[in-house]
Design a protein around this nucleic acid. Structure first.
Lengths: 301, 301
DNA sequence: GTTGGATATTTGTCTAGGACAAAGCGTGGG
DNA sequence: CCCACGCTTTGTCCTAGACAAATATCCAAC
């Protein structure tokens, strides 16, 4: 018992940083510098782990390892506080009441509050004006340390249930036909569900494969379901260059007439080849209309 | 374009076999023996990938690497055919009609058929007698090569939507209070949802965190929500010894009065320390009743 | 013939340090 | 002010060795 220790595999799991990278950072920057057990194997502390998570978050935001790996804890903390409050600033909404439900462990309360908002303002506005910014706010609260991982998990589950329920009430017809999924390295499904909600509202027909579909399977599924577009969701922590590369590969593999639509926080920094469009979360309705324009048909198929 | 190649990271992603292990197998058994690019880096073929997936499946079933890594393709195929039909045999149900919907890409049809069954026989029987065996059948069909990965994904999404919808109709009260999640290495959420359905039927109060919750977060969440039990789901591909080990760790970290309930195909081969119970999918109702008995209260809290 | 326990083999994961290409950054010239 | 070039940073791959835990095999005793 006493002080918990983690081996390198556990740290890879919990932080998303590969074993190779952890060892390399240790070699180059001297952090993390874990203890060793009797066999000379690395044993990381809880503190190492927490620090690594913060560092990961900052790197996702664009900082470079060379600069932040050497920082003292307080400087790191300061940086996190400085970087976080992008949502709080521009939005006139105050998300604190929702976050407070989470912190109290009052999940039914949170669920009710959200369900109420859904009914008050309708699905589209609910997704765009509540869920999307609130999800960002939750992420930033986590970054500042005011929300725990399990609370983020609980939040995610509640939103998923709400959205899925709403989506299931829509017709399974419409056009264009979209295949929704994420690439194998992207395991966040919330953005996908938001996209699906916005697209069914806009009259599209959605076939969702959930997260992490291998590239060749996406291609086969696109053919099997005769889809017009493949829609991919990227979270902010998705490495931009890898995304750019994989989108290019997919573009090569898919028939030319099948469009690729990308969206989510991670998609905004990517370079898109021809035949690939940025379609959500901001402009799902327009994306559908544009498609109809490009394909010379009315909204009714 | 031409022939697709995969680097070692892609193979790790798609097969779940670590880079270390892939290199070790190559060293020891001579398979996989990928080409090398101009920098001497491994380039795996589609065939390598498919073969590795089959091998993985057989190892999950209990075969040992030394035996099957040297087999010729036909022998491997034969083994897969022999091992697969466990469900088809004992069940009097014929799952082919459902699988056929999947193969045809007729997802609305599958959804309707399942929804009908749900209404015909009720949620409990639907989960136990349809969803659970059908999920196994889908997995085995995939193993035999008669179902593709993306079809399995689509199946999973449909079931999730159905179950989530059904679950949301139940009260958020009851006893005992359960925390549902999976360990960080288990990413299959279907079993979890089945468990949640069975437990809400049995009158329990469920707090679900979705998949892949870090150990320390489970502990904190258990305290925050004042849960009586932590329920963990394991798929058949979960490595048994790792599961046994991690359950033991969690048992140490949780207060003694908080029980651990485990379930899912992967849990049946695990050794359970005291304070850990096997609770689903077969006996969720009993598990709840046993708890009430152990804790000396009636069903009404 | 079967059961228990000691020994041998198999298997996965860790270690170290080296190499290199791609991305990012900065500097100088047009 | 912007672009092209070169330097630096950074991540991922490589080989090869070690070792412990899991599993299989074998032999003796009942």
């Amino acid at each position: 018992m006493s002080t918990q220790g983690f081996n390198i595999a556990a740290v890879e799991r919990d932080t998303g940083l590969s074993k190779d990278l952890l060892r390399m950072w240790e070699r180059r920057y001297g952090f993390p510098a874990p203890e060793r057990d009797q066999h000379g194997e690395r044993v990381y502390s809880v503190l190492d782990l927490e620090r690594l998570r913060r560092i990961k978050r900052l790197i996702d935001k664009g900082f470079r390892p060379g600069k932040i790996l050497k920082l003292a804890s307080e400087e790191l903390e300061q940086l996190l506080q400085d970087v976080a409050p992008t949502v709080q600033a521009d939005a006139q909404m105050n998300w604190e009441p929702y976050l407070e439900h989470l912190r109290q462990g009052d999940l039914p309360g949170l669920r009710n509050a959200l369900q109420q908002q859904l009914l008050l303002q309708g699905l589209q506005s609910f997704v765009l004006d509540i869920v999307a910014p609130l999800t960002v706010a939750v992420g930033e609260a986590w970054m500042r340390g005011s929300i725990r991982v399990h609370e983020e998990h609980a939040y995610s589950e509640i939103i998923k249930a709400l959205l899925q329920q709403a989506i299931s009430l829509f017709s399974e017809r419409g056009s264009p036909t979209l295949l929704l999924t994420t690439l194998p390295d992207e395991q966040h499904g919330l953005g996908l569900l938001m996209a699906e909600a916005l697209f069914v509202i806009a009259g599209a027909r959605c076939v969702s494969l959930g997260t992490r579909t291998p590239m060749l399977e996406i291609v086969d599924a696109a053919a099997r379901h005769h889809v017009d577009c493949v829609a991919l969701s990227f979270s902010t922590s998705f490495p931009a260059r890898q995304g750019t590369q994989q989108i290019r590969e997919l573009r090569e593999l898919l028939p030319e007439k099948v469009e690729i639509w990308v969206g989510g926080g991670g998609s905004s920094v990517m370079q898109l080849p021809p035949g690939v469009y940025r379609a959500f979360p901001t402009t799902p309705g327009e994306a559908v209309m544009d498609w109809h324009r490009r394909n010379g048909r009315g909204v009714a198929d």
